[in-house]
Design a protein around this nucleic acid. Structure first.
Lengths: 345, 345
DNA sequence: CTGAAAGCGCTAACAC
DNA sequence: GTGTTAGCGCTTTCAG
């Protein structure tokens, strides 16, 4: 578990190149202000010896780590049941790699883990953190703020009294929801229902708000609460059918939920989209394309969200739009969504 | 991006507790051989100062990092389209956390990334690596071996001439496939087809072998090659229907493929399982439970695979079953699979 | 433009 | 048991 072969040090390279350690260091770190001849000699020595800088030693003096933590709160299995997380990670990874940063993944399962993560972040092991805060009452954001690590959140954090200058990247959930519902309206539907997501997550709340924006004085019975799962979607759809048999369209908070609704609709003998039009959210391919009929849905560019989070963090908190001041700056970003038309609406 | 507040050092704690740095160090690292009174005093000082050890300084001298790299080769989007990866990661994370190790995630997208990963691993930043080698011709394993980092592979690595003593964790793909096909046979089916996965991955090859184990002299036309995707499944199913209209069962290399096959079967007017029984592989819940009818499939415990990989790595290469010798030891593990019966077969 | 020297914060012998 | 001491490998003033 320890290093096997004793790796060459700066010293060794210096000796071989016939220069001082300082010079080698300079060359290794960008090599400005060193004569070309020496640069060449050092490069050669590095090559021959297979020298790789010792990051620990470097960090010790620079106090930087070129590493950022990605914290994923994972109380539910749900997030693992969809590729959301993986895609976001991919975007993050790409951006970090481009900036020579490492990605330290911190998965939390429960209360105990919060403390662990807090400690780790406070321990100054990383230069920043990317945090996915899934629930309104999540204690993590608080802990992290206290750890004093530059942070960007994935998805609008929902803690009460939004702190000043929290940086986050989110999809335009509300706008996307509006587009979906407007599309339904454009189809001539009048009894448009909404199956919500888990309302302790801002994305669910925002999508509900978007629905309400369009359906200003909608029948309250047209709103059924679910939790982003297929099972929840089925349950909600049954309720809906029960309360409002005349429903002619459903906007579900995500694709999984929509898939559940679809199934219940079919069972009940309704044809989609003829009798009831259905729209989902996410455009989670393996789900949206496989349903019967394929799902019309609101797409968000998940990978891009990840990339942006990383970019925002690496750029640092000082480059926001507003002037620095109380509470810092930290511009946040909200990405647009697009409606993807398939057969269900 | 740098540390903000100057954190207290061992020195500071020592001063406050009125002891030497060495004593504080001892207490911090397990505190054996220190008088209880002093332990107490040190603990208090640590608490009051909010002392957290500087990992860089520690690594510099111990040459350990308490960090392992997880390398995921990602040439295809496929892997991201299913929760496989996330589940495995979760298992790994749990085990590492339990042993106070950090998880450094390395995602590779293409050729350039290989070099980067190789350099990182060779750089001695981590104590070991967990590698998901997806394709037979993947250059990564080679690179990694050369880097001289203890490594455990996820899935049997497929490079020609299997090197001595490569540690890996895999599912019993072959056995699982056998179970599936036997189940089909038990159902009285005689024209049992197989839709393969991408045959440049050992899992696909092993599943095909399992099929052949049971269908010893099967009609060759009953085997159609696909690539683990739903689209591939559709294509293969069409071929199959074309070549052998009398097919009465299909064992697909994974659930996604099975889902595609299911769709084509329905289109063609076949009833499942009455006319054609279908079995998948993976038990990828969001897919297997959502198909119509729900999929009978071979389940593998993915999270456990991840956990085992980490355990194997942390335990070190010296504790294998065999004696140490040329090529080391490194016991590998193959996990059993179980058949999950749903409606499709 | 280059080298010498002083640590970064910690652990691990080795004395006491 | 506890303290003293010598680095781990690197960056970075500061001289030259």
């Amino acid at each position: 578990m320890t290093d096997t072969a004793p790796r060459p040090t700066l010293e060794a390279v210096a000796a071989r190149a016939g220069v001082s350690r300082a010079t080698v260091s300079r060359v290794v770190n960008g090599g400005d202000g060193v004569r070309d001849i020496l640069v060449e000699r050092v490069r050669k020595a590095v090559e021959e010896l297979g020298y790789v800088p010792n990051q620990a030693a470097r960090s010790l003096v620079t106090r930087r780590h070129d590493a950022i933590a990605v914290v994923v709160a994972e109380p539910e299995t749900r997030v693992f049941a969809d590729p959301f997380f993986a895609l976001q990670l991919r975007g993050i990874s790409k951006e970090l790699t481009a900036h020579d940063n490492q990605l330290v993944l911190l998965l939390t399962e429960g209360r105990d883990d919060h403390a662990r993560v807090g400690r780790y972040l406070a321990g100054g092991h990383v230069d920043g953190a990317l945090v996915f805060s899934l629930h309104l009452d999540d204690p993590l954001p608080e802990l992290i703020q206290r750890a004093g690590v530059p942070t960007v959140f994935g998805g609008r954090p929902g803690w009460s009294g939004d702190r000043h200058g929290v940086a986050y990247v989110d999809s335009d959930n509300r706008g996307g929801a509006r587009d979906a519902v407007r599309h339904l309206v454009g189809l001539g539907r009048t009894r448009i229902a909404h199956i919500t997501g888990a309302l302790d997550q801002t994305s669910a709340v925002d999508r509900l708000d978007g629905y309400r924006d369009v359906m200003v004085d909608a029948d309250r019975r047209l709103i059924a609460e679910a939790d982003f799962t297929p099972a929840g979607g089925e349950r909600a759809m049954r309720e809906l059918l029960d309360r409002c048999p005349d429903v002619d369209a459903v906007f579900a908070a995500n694709d999984l939920t929509a898939a559940g609704a679809l199934r219940v609709l079919r069972e009940s003998g309704r044809r989609v989209p003829d009798d009831v039009a259905v729209i989902g959210f996410d455009d989670m391919l393996p789900v949206a394309e496989q349903t019967d009929p394929p799902l019309t849905t609101v797409r968000q560019d998940i990978e891009e969200m990840g990339r942006l989070m990383a970019r925002l963090l690496l750029r640092g908190p000082d480059q926001g739009t507003r002037r620095e001041g109380v509470g810092g700056t930290s511009s946040s970003v909200v990405l647009p969504t697009t409606l993807v038309r398939r057969a269900s609406a």
